[in-house]
């Protein structure tokens, strides 16, 4: 128990010793050190990289804010590994864009919904915060997908080209989410579109030959991804522009579509 008159009783001498706190400093400086968590190496690096302590903090706390999605994605990928080993369909590259799109919509929703009004009064632009969160989603999805791929070697050696549809589909979902103010709708539309893209060659093959084996991996084969790369890139750029325009870029007055729903 602390004997110092200025400190609350739950602060122990050990804690103070560990922090190497100078008690001659003003009280609030001391308590600030005691109550806060030390800034970790990742955050310190991000501060230098972004030039912004705020964005560094957003980066570091984003995984905590989207924890539900991270856990769900890990489970889905695990299931994907099991199914891939059983059926030999390359599920991991198929799942990654879908999960990323859901993650981006969820991050937009979790970030936007919870402390929405307060966040809108901050000098740090919500666009930058969204960008940082999206990067976190992509990074986590890539890591989880990469780990899953180790256990379920894909047929035909699909490379990291599935990052392309991942970004494109996520941007599509985000564009829908920002235009409608409904993150769930954004995620849903993205899933629908991606399912359509995946199923289209399968249905075509079935039409030609009713006995053709179902090969879900057509769309994520290396050749297909290379062929469609310009399409994915164009979709990314267009949807990205829509998102930025809706968030106040290009001179558009910054007013979220959601306000009209109240």
């Amino acid at each position: 128990m602390s004997e110092h008159p200025h400190l609350p009783p739950d602060v122990t001498e050990e804690e103070l010793a560990m922090l190497d706190v100078n008690l001659e400093r003003p009280w609030h400086g001391v308590m600030g050190e005691v109550w806060s968590r030390p800034v970790g190496p990742v955050e310190r690096l991000a501060r230098k990289a972004f030039g912004s302590a705020a964005l560094a903090r957003v980066l570091v706390v984003s995984p905590l804010m989207i924890l539900a999605w991270i856990i769900a994605s890990a489970l889905v990928f695990a299931l994907g590994v099991v199914v891939t080993q059983a059926t030999e369909q390359p599920l991991i590259p198929l799942l990654a864009p879908a999960l990323a799109a859901v993650g981006v919509a969820y991050a937009y929703g979790a970030g936007a919904d919870v402390a929405f009004e307060i966040s809108r009064t901050m000098p740090v632009s919500s666009r930058m915060i969204l960008l940082v969160r999206m990067t976190v989603v992509f990074a986590i999805c890539t890591v989880l997908g990469g780990v899953a791929s180790l256990f379920a070697p894909a047929i035909g050696g699909v490379t990291a080209l599935w990052l392309l549809p991942m970004v494109a589909i996520s941007m599509l979902g985000l564009a829908v989410a920002t235009l409608t103010g409904l993150p769930a709708l954004g995620g849903g539309v993205a899933l629908l579109v991606w399912s359509g893209i995946v199923m289209q060659p399968v249905l075509e093959a079935r039409r030609e030959d009713a006995a053709a084996p179902v090969d879900l991996g057509t769309v994520v084969s290396e050749s297909a991804l290379m062929d469609h790369a310009p399409l994915y890139l164009a979709a990314t750029v267009v949807c990205g522009a829509i998102v930025m325009w809706n968030n106040g870029a290009f001179g558009r007055p910054q007013e979220d579509a959601r306000w009209h729903w109240r």
Binding site: H28, G29, G32, A53, A54, M122, V124
Partner: peptide
């Protein structure tokens, strides 16, 4: 939120306290 308000990082902790 103190960080998002672009407070100088070295003053944030004392201000929050």
């Amino acid at each position: 939120f103190a960080l998002l308000k672009k407070m100088p990082p070295n003053r944030v902790r004392a201000a929050v306290a």
